[in-house]
Amino acid sequence: MTLMPTASATVGPYLHIGLVPLSVNDIAKDASKGETIIISGRVLDGEGQPVPDALVEFWQANADGKYAHPEDTQAKPLDGKFTGFGRVPTDKEGRYSFTTVKPGAVPGPGNSLQAPHIVICLFMRGMLKHLYTRIYFSDESAANANDPVLGLVEDAARRPTLIADRTAGKAEYRWDIRMQGEGETVFFDC
């Protein structure tokens, strides 16, 4: 039997009613190791206007580079109750923020190693299906240079849209999402 996957539809303007009750903006509190970091930024539309009705979901490995999922069979430890998943809505100014621990490196295709990263799933009113993108870290430039997924972005000038900038002297990163135009974020078809 082969069934057709159900079509996606927009979350619409009232997504907060259905998706905020189980939002999670701090998953670092469940981790026993790793550097606690804050990632924040804005979601901006094609005119540079803030998107106040977006939802950012994030998925990542723990500080050792292990996913809390049965298909991650690496011989690395899980970290207690750390799920690696959270979701945050944007506010009226299109801002989002979440607290997590910096993930470890995970395996890529073949024998490659992926630079530390967080997978992002983005929803908003006006978007008929969700988009995937990734957050890498500006203080991992050597690992980023060899990352097989960043390497898929042929226009190297667009790769920085996937890299969160670490604020000097703080465990904080800034990462904006731009839907169109100059600095348009790279989104993945996966």
């Binding site: 995970v106 295709p109 972005v153 790279v186 078809d189």
Partner: peptide
């Protein structure tokens, strides 16, 4: 969109 072969992530 940039076509990505799915990884463990």
């Amino acid at each position: 969109l940039v076509k990505l072969t799915q990884t463990l992530s």
